[in-house]
């Protein structure tokens, strides 16, 4: 009930605000990978499409169509949006580590990743870490479920021994149910013998 009232008040506020004339600006910017997507801005007056980096459009009110797109300079964008941009959390970091056959021992190659993983957790002060254990399709399903759990728990212990908080970590075991490389049953595939560590 309270929620409904709150929503009503919020909606009323939204209406009140829009009634007395707001003005909006929308800017399409490249994402962290450097790709620029596409967006449309629509109101009762019409629609405008943005599909180029740093293109912007202004909206005067809900009845007047969005204006002609205009490119903004980096300085113009920073002047308005620097605090919002600085507040962006980092997107989650994902690491994949591989294991020796039928074992909870990491490959030499994957051991080298450990310092970087631990550094990432500590630097971000992440309180939201997901470890998922996997196997290839050699052996029985039930056995592989236990093996992948063992691998995930091994990773859990490594992270906790290096300063991660146990309560911040979720451990999941997928056995052979979530293959990175699709194979038939009873196929040894090094890339499937893995744990994935997601640091959010």
């Amino acid at each position: 009930m309270k929620k409904t009232i709150l929503l009503f008040i919020s909606s009323a506020l939204l209406l009140a605000v829009s009634a007395c004339g707001t003005k909006s600006t929308v800017v399409l910017v490249p994402d962290p990978d450097g790709r620029t997507g596409k967006l449309t801005v629509t109101n009762q007056g019409g629609t405008q499409t943005l599909d180029q980096a740093n293109q912007s459009v202004q909206i005067k009110n809900k009845k007047t169509a969005p204006g002609t797109p205009e490119k903004l300079s980096h300085d113009e964008i920073a002047a308005v949006f620097s605090d919002a941009l600085a507040a962006q959390p980092l997107p989650p970091a994902k690491f994949t580590l591989y294991f020796l056959p039928d074992s909870n021992l990491l490959t030499q190659e994957s051991k080298k990743l450990l310092p970087q993983i631990i550094q990432t957790i500590l630097k971000r002060k992440s309180s939201d870490i997901v470890i998922s254990g996997h196997t290839d399709t050699v052996g029985k399903k039930a056995y592989n479920y236990r093996l992948s759990l063992d691998r995930a728990k091994t990773m859990f212990n490594i992270l906790v021994d290096n300063g991660a908080v146990p309560d911040d970590i979720r451990v999941t075991s997928h056995g052979e149910g979530n293959l990175l490389i699709k194979t038939p049953d009873d196929v040894a595939e090094p890339k499937n013998r893995r744990v994935e560590v997601l640091i959010r």
């Binding site: 800017v27 967006l39 308005v80």
Partner: peptide
């Protein structure tokens, strides 16, 4: 939604300012 328009996206990043 802003008070005066709706933004629909296609996998992207954008910035919005609403002045009142």
């Amino acid at each position: 939604h802003t008070p005066d328009a709706t933004i629909n996206i296609r996998g992207t990043q954008f910035l919005v300012k609403v002045e009142i």
